[in-house]
C-alpha cells in the first residue's frame, strides 16, 4: 500500500501551533464541502426526478448555496409565544457544535502523508471512536431542546420521535463497529486504518458495514429514516417553528453529520486513506471515499420512501440489535480461534 509503518504512536501530539493550524484547516475544508454537498444533492435529486435542479444562480447553479445562506440570514427569527426563547436560540448552536466536534477524529492521512511532523487528522487519541459516540449522543440534545422549547405540538412530537429514534439506533451503531475494533485490536482510527493495509474491513465485516450504514442513516435523520421531520405528517417536525438561519444551522448540522458518518464509514470499513499512488495522495483517496458515500446517501433519499414509525422501531430493536450482537459473537470466536 501507499506508505510504510506510521511514524507516530497513538496520542502523538505536534507543536501546539501546528495542532491549532491543522484543526482550522480541516474545519475550513469541511465547511467548503457542506455547500457542495447541498448543491450536488439538489442537482442529483433534480435529475432523479427528470428536472434540472438549481441552475440560475451562477454557472451550473454553483452560487445557489451562498444565495440560500444570504436569504436565510436576512429572514426573521419568529418565536411563538408558547416558546422558551433562550432555549430556541441555543438548540441550533448545540447541533452545529456537536457535529463539528465529531469532525476532529476523522483521519485524512497519517503522519508521513504530507510531512513527517504532523498527521492529517484533528486528534488521534486512545479512546478514538468513543469520542465520536460521546458527541453523537450529545447531538440529540439539540433536536430535543429545539422541539420541546418551541411549544408547538408538531415540534414536540418530532423531538420525541427523534429522541427515541436516535437512542434506538445508537446501540446498533455501537455494536456494528465492535467487529472492526476486535479485528484491529485498537480504538484509534489511524491504527484501524493501518490494520486495513492488506484488505479492507468491508470484506470481513460486511454485515457490520450494512448495519452501520443503516444505523448511520437513522442517526443523521436522513431518508428513509427522516421521521423526526416527516413533512407529510408533522409539517417539519422538530424544526417547524425555526426560521431564518436557526433553521439553516439545523440543516448545516445535518450535513456535517452526514460527512462525519461517511468519514467514519470510510475509515472503519473502506480502508481510510489507503489507495494506489504515492502517500501524498492519501487525503485525496479519503475525500473520494467520503464523496462516494455522500452520493450514496443522496441516491437512497431519491429511491426509498419513508418508513412507518412502528416499522422503524421494530426494525431497530428486533432486527439490527440481534444481528449486530451475532456479528460481534462470530467475529470474536473467529478472531480468537484462528
Amino acid at each position: 500500500m501507499s506508505h510504510a509503518a506510521p511514524l507516530a504512536v497513538v496520542n502523538y501530539s505536534e507543536d501546539w501551533w501546528i495542532q491549532i493550524l491543522k484543526a482550522i484547516v480541516i474545519f475550513l475544508v469541511v465547511l467548503q464541502i457542506v455547500p457542495l454537498v447541498l448543491l450536488v444533492e439538489r442537482k442529483l435529486l433534480g435529475r432523479f426526478q427528470s428536472r434540472y435542479g438549481p441552475n440560475r444562480v451562477g454557472k451550473f447553479g454553483l452560487l445557489q448555496p451562498l444565495a440560500d445562506v444570504l436569504k436565510l440570514l436576512s429572514k426573521e427569527q419568529a418565536t411563538p409565544n408558547t416558546a422558551v426563547p433562550w432555549m430556541m436560540a441555543i438548540a441550533p448552536v448545540i447541533s452545529i457544535f456537536t457535529a463539528t466536534a465529531t469532525l476532529a477524529i476523522i483521519p485524512f492521512g497519517d503522519v508521513g502523508s504530507w510531512g513527517d511532523h504532523f498527521g492529517l487528522y484533528g486528534i488521534d487519541v486512545s479512546i478514538g471512536i468513543l469520542y465520536a459516540f460521546a458527541f453523537g449522543a450529545l447531538a440529540f440534545y439539540g433536536l430535543m431542546l429545539g422541539g420541546w422549547a418551541s411549544g408547538s405540538k408538531y415540534s414536540f412530537l418530532g423531538s420525541m420521535r427523534s429522541a427515541a429514534q436516535l437512542i434506538s439506533y445508537e446501540i446498533a451503531l455501537g455494536l456494528s463497529l465492535l467487529g472492526v475494533v476486535i479485528q484491529a485490536g485498537s480504538l484509534s482510527l489511524t491504527e484501524i486504518v493501518d490494520a486495513q493495509r492488506d484488505y479492507w474491513f468491508v470484506i470481513s465485516q460486511f454485515v457490520g458495514f450494512l448495519i452501520f450504514t443503516v444505523a448511520g442513516f437513522a442517526e443523521t435523520n436522513r431518508p428513509p429514516f427522516d421521521l423526526p421531520e416527516a413533512e407529510t405528517e408533522l409539517v417539519s417536525g422538530y424544526n417547524t417553528e425555526f426560521g431564518g438561519m436557526r433553521f439553516g444551522s439545523f440543516f448545516m448540522a445535518e450535513y456535517i453529520n452526514m460527512i462525519v458518518i461517511s468519514g467514519i464509514a470510510a475509515t472503519m470499513f473502506l480502508g481510510g486513506w489507503h489507495g494506489p499512488g504515492p502517500a501524498a495522495l492519501d487525503p485525496l483517496w479519503m475525500l473520494l471515499k467520503i464523496a462516494g458515500f455522500l452520493v450514496f446517501f443522496i441516491w437512497v433519499r431519491a429511491t426509498l420512501p419513508r418508513l412507518r414509525y412502528d416499522q422503524l422501531m421494530s426494525f431497530g430493536w428486533k432486527v439490527l440489535l440481534p444481528l449486530a450482537t451475532l456479528n460481534v459473537l462470530v467475529t470474536a470466536i473467529v478472531v480468537v480461534v484462528s
Binding site: 495542532q19 484543526a23 482550522i24 448552536v93 452545529i96 457544535f97 463539528t100 466536534a101 469532525l103 484533528g122
Partner: peptide
Amino acid sequence: LQSYLPALVFLVLGG
C-alpha cells in the same frame, strides 16, 4: 493531554 488540543479548537470553532 496535549493531543486533545485540536478537539478544543474544533469545539471553539463549532460554537
